[in-house]
Simulated scan of single mutants.
Amino acid sequence: LAWGVALWSLATLLTPWAAAHSTLALLCVRAFFGLAEGVAMPSMTTLLSRWFPRDERASAVGISMAGFHMGNVVGLLLTPIMLSCIGISGPFILFASLGLLWVSTWSSGVTNNPQDSPFITRSELRLIQAGKQVHTPTNRAKPNPYLLLLLSKLPTWAIIFANMTNNWGYFVLLSWMPVYFQTVFNVNLKQAAWFSALPWATMAISGYYAGAASDFLIRTGHSVTSVRKIMQSIGFMGPGLSLLCLNYAKSPSCAAVFMTVALSLSSFSQAGFLLNMQDIAPECAGFLHGISNCAGTLAAIVSTIGTGYFVQWLGSFQAFLTVTAFLYFATTVFWILFATGERVF
């Protein structure tokens, strides 16, 4: 993870230079950025599965992802200001510097396994190990299953389709939200940034509470399968309905409310498919996350590019928002039918 952050921070720092040099250089640097950034989520999944007992992982994911979402808030608010005051290189230098600062702190204080950490107490270590023993049939490490074996099980496909749908909606909103406000409601870029930042801030908060609620339900005796299905259903049905309502928004304030609701409820997916990888494949959760993230990234690319074509073709955002909403609904049905909280691999 540290190497990934260091490399994508370097790529961020080089982006203005590459843009000034040539289109090919810019594409190469951004491709390198994407390759380096790809390790983040699988690494996080692996670390959380090692460091937290099962009935605390949803809260841990909620806290971790809160930082992820707040990064969007900071980026959306600071970037327009820095562009107007400092120039195009300012945001890239700042964000690259923050990444390298994080690497120096992380590398000196974090270990892959809790038993190797000098900062953990014996009671904390026993709590982590006990949480794993309760839910895991054996402590003996198993080799990673073959890719074909992973793909032969429907719970794996439930995670893959959920990741694809989540990324589809997430990156449509992340990439096109400022353009939406600017195009539909004729607000300027700085105003659009404020309207766009609010949903991400509430998403950080709601994601934590979704995780806490998930852990509470598991501790009070509800099955992991039912909790994962409930959380994921909220995480997809809520955004789907909100996007349909967004088609009827008559003001930027009203649209911001619907987008805020959509993204806030989508954070419940953190206690759904994002945690489910650790449920069905605890010994290779990072590997499974990497597989599903490949599909999710492709969906994000298609949706981000597709939004532009849809809007250009039809002259409005409404059609694409409707397609995205029904994609949420269809994936929810598949998830309810085939997802499980029990160990599969």
Score class of each variant (00 low, 15 high):
169 G>C: 07
267 S>G: 06
268 F>S: 09
308 G>M: 03
294 C>A: 12
25 A>S: 12
197 A>K: 01
341 G>A: 04
268 F>H: 10
27 L>C: 06
40 A>P: 00
126 R>V: 12
49 S>V: 05
129 Q>C: 10
21 H>G: 03
268 F>V: 03
10 L>M: 14
148 L>A: 07
143 P>V: 00
8 W>N: 14
328 Y>E: 11
7 L>G: 13
65 M>K: 03
313 W>V: 09
239 P>H: 01
12 T>R: 13
167 N>V: 05
151 L>T: 10
161 F>T: 11
272 G>S: 14
211 G>K: 04
312 Q>N: 14
99 G>N: 05
107 S>P: 13
100 L>H: 01
345 F>S: 10
204 A>V: 04
113 N>G: 11
157 W>G: 14
166 N>T: 08
245 C>S: 03
29 V>K: 14
201 A>S: 07
133 Q>S: 08
163 N>G: 11
49 S>W: 01
82 M>N: 04
152 S>V: 10
155 P>A: 14
344 V>W: 08
39 V>Y: 00
124 E>I: 14
308 G>V: 02
4 G>L: 09
117 S>W: 07
28 C>Q: 06
195 F>C: 05
229 K>Q: 09
28 C>E: 04
281 A>L: 01
9 S>R: 13
179 V>T: 08
297 T>H: 13
190 K>R: 12
128 I>T: 09
231 M>S: 11
156 T>A: 15
199 P>R: 07
111 T>D: 15
61 V>L: 08
284 C>W: 07
294 C>F: 05
315 G>L: 13
194 W>F: 07
42 P>S: 06
215 D>C: 06
108 S>I: 08
48 L>K: 11
19 A>C: 05
296 G>E: 03
81 I>Y: 05
26 L>W: 03
83 L>V: 11
194 W>M: 05
76 L>E: 02
236 F>D: 02
28 C>H: 02
333 V>D: 13
